[in-house]
Structure formats: C-alpha cells, structure tokens
C-alpha cells in the first residue's frame, strides 16, 4: 500500500514540467523514506535525479518498496486535468502495481485518475558522493537568463570559477561574450551570490541541457552549481521542505 499526498500539487506539476523535455520514461521509486527518480536523458549526456522526503508530504505511507514505471508524457496528460492549487494524492494498493491512482482535490471538486504503468528495465547509475571543488549559489532566474542569452551566441557555454566569482563565456562563429557574476552578501537570500572555490574550474557544456532544465527555476529562487574539473556539473534546485531536483551534466572535452 502506497499513498503520498502533496499539500501543494502545483509543486509536483512544476517538477514534471521541468523534466519532461529531458526524460521520457522513468522508474518512480517509493519506499519508507520517500519518493525518488533517476533517469538519463535520451542522449545519455545528462542524468536527472529527484528526491522527495516523506516528511514533506501532507500524508505519506509506503509499507513496501515500490518501483512504478511511467511515461512522463502520459503523466503530464493526467496532471493537466488538475489545478495548480489542488492537493494531489498518488496511491496504489498492490505490491506489483499496474496502475497508479491520482486524486486531485480542490475546494469545489475532487477528481480521480488512473495512469497505466509499464515495466522499464532501466540501468540505475551510482552517483558517488563527491566533494566539489567549486560550489556556486546564485539566483535561479539570473542563471536561466544567462544560459538563454549566451545560448543564442553558441551552443557550448564555458564556466570558469575563481575566488572572485563565476564567469560564463561563449565563443561562437558570430563572435564571443562573457558574463561575470559578482559575489554579493545581500540580506535578500533569493538575490545572494555565493562562491566556495577550493580549486577553480574551467568547463564547457552544451547549453541546451541547461535551457531545458531551467524550467525547474519555478521550484526555487536559488540554484546551486557544483563543479570539479573534468567532472559532470550538478545543477541543484532545492525543493523547500521536500527535497531536491538535480541535473548531472557531462562536460564537453576539447578534442
């Protein structure tokens, strides 16, 4: 028996919205500690990892670990039948469920849906706990804007960190550009820029993945970029009181 109730159903919709362009079919894992999801994008360049802790739910029960294979596209079709202010409950009775039930509750109506599940034998990747040599925390809408603007100049974006801060740069056919974001300790947490740089990094990434993933900025006003030289970068959106949504992106290596 599994039951998980989102107090804020809109949050669940934003999570699905953020990953729907990156992953197609995913295994949703549920156990006593909460719900998790890990899936590579179709080109196997990025890995999406979601972790939602049971304490963050209005109601949560999971007597036995469950794996529920679902199509994100079909999940979205069901979620489009819910309102952004609805409470959303996920439920299944069986130990080997073939469907996942959804209840959408608002003041004046209650809806019930069932999503057919599928069995996916997807390889799960072991993501080692890593001490990153550069960790940058900045406003998520600022990061989104920089990626979108520089992404118009070149499909690869360079990221260079130093004690002074973080620099994004592009060198394309039409020309080049760079944006240096300065550290600030403003008292407004959502506008703060913090850099912890033990070792500076200089890495290059395909910016299209950032632009696809940055829909997640609706989840959090801040984004955390964790980097080490020649390692995948992690973009993390903290989901207040619940957990986090992460994107691991492999770097581009100069030939």
């Amino acid at each position: 028996m599994f039951e998980a109730k989102f107090e804020d159903g809109g949050l669940f919709k934003k999570i699905v919205e953020a990953i729907k362009e990156l992953v197609k079919n995913v295994n949703l894992e549920a156990n006593g500690t909460g719900i998790s999801l890990q899936a590579m994008d179709t080109s196997h360049v990025a890995l999406v990892a979601l972790q939602l802790n049971e304490k963050g739910f209005k109601k949560y029960r999971c007597e036995k670990s469950l794996t529920m294979g679902l199509s994100i596209e079909n999940l979205q079709k069901i979620l489009k039948c819910s309102g952004n202010d609805d409470q959303i409950t996920l439920r299944t009775q069986d130990e080997e469920p073939t469907t996942l039930s959804f209840t959408f509750e608002s003041k004046n109506r209650i809806s019930e849906f069932q999503l057919n599940l599928m069995s996916l034998d997807q390889e799960q990747l072991g993501v080692p706990d890593t001490e990153y040599s550069s960790v940058v925390r900045m406003p998520s809408n600022e990061f989104t804007k920089i990626c979108r603007e520089l992404g118009n100049i070149n499909e690869a974006i360079g990221i260079e960190t130093s004690k002074e801060g973080i620099k994004f740069y592009v060198k394309g056919d039409i020309g080049e550009g760079q944006v240096s974001v300065k550290i600030n300790d403003t008292e407004k947490p959502e506008e703060r820029v913090e850099c912890e740089v033990d070792e500076p990094v200089n890495l290059s990434f395909a910016v299209r993945y950032f632009n696809l993933f940055n829909k997640a900025s609706a989840l959090s006003s801040q984004v955390i970029l964790s980097m080490s030289q020649d390692q995948p970068l992690v973009i993390e959106y903290i989901i207040e009181e619940m957990g986090s949504l992460k994107l691991y992106l492999a770097p581009k290596i100069n030939d």
């Binding site: 990747l125 072991g126 390692q231 581009k252």
Partner: peptide, 12 residues
C-alpha cells in the same frame, strides 16, 4: 567532444 554521463557514474 561531448562525453556521456555513464562514463562518470558506474551503473549500480
């Protein structure tokens, strides 16, 4: 050249 994510993380 674009690396694959699986080359960094072993499948568990």
């Amino acid at each position: 050249m674009q690396k694959k994510i699986a080359s960094y993380f072993k499948s568990s």
